[in-house]
Amino acid sequence: MRHADTICGALLAALGCALIVSGAAFPAAAGGLPGAGFFPQSIGTLMALLASALLLRGLRRRSEGSFSIANMREVAVTAALLLAYLLLWGSGWFVVRTAVFLAIMLSLLGQRWIPALGYASALAVLVYLAFDVGLNVTLE
């Protein structure tokens, strides 16, 4: 992808404009003092200006903001696994769930199954002992 700067600039410029517009809807303060919308609008203005500069630079010098992800598959798989793990957060069996998640992740990253499972279980038990038993943080 060679338009990373252009895309970043466009996204942030849009966010800046959104801040300016939404800031106008916040209640004003009495006596001419800046209200709840003052800071969102100031930050939005600054962001929109800077982002436009980045956008222009990206359009002018396309080669600079190049963007590529090596090992895309492994990154995506890790991110997706973690997402699944978070979706199951609080559904019970913390130690087992964590160990299985870590073992799958490790094996997908090219580690051998048996040591991965052993290490993952040890890590899950350690975290459980440290946080749930030691620090009274309820993990379930």
Partner: peptide, 20 residues
């Protein structure tokens, strides 16, 4: 990869432990 697994699990539980 083993180090990454450790960072992920301690980071996740640490983020949770802060405010439950």
């Amino acid at each position: 990869p083993w180090l990454w697994a450790g960072i992920i699990v301690f980071g996740t539980v640490g983020a949770y432990a802060l405010n439950n």
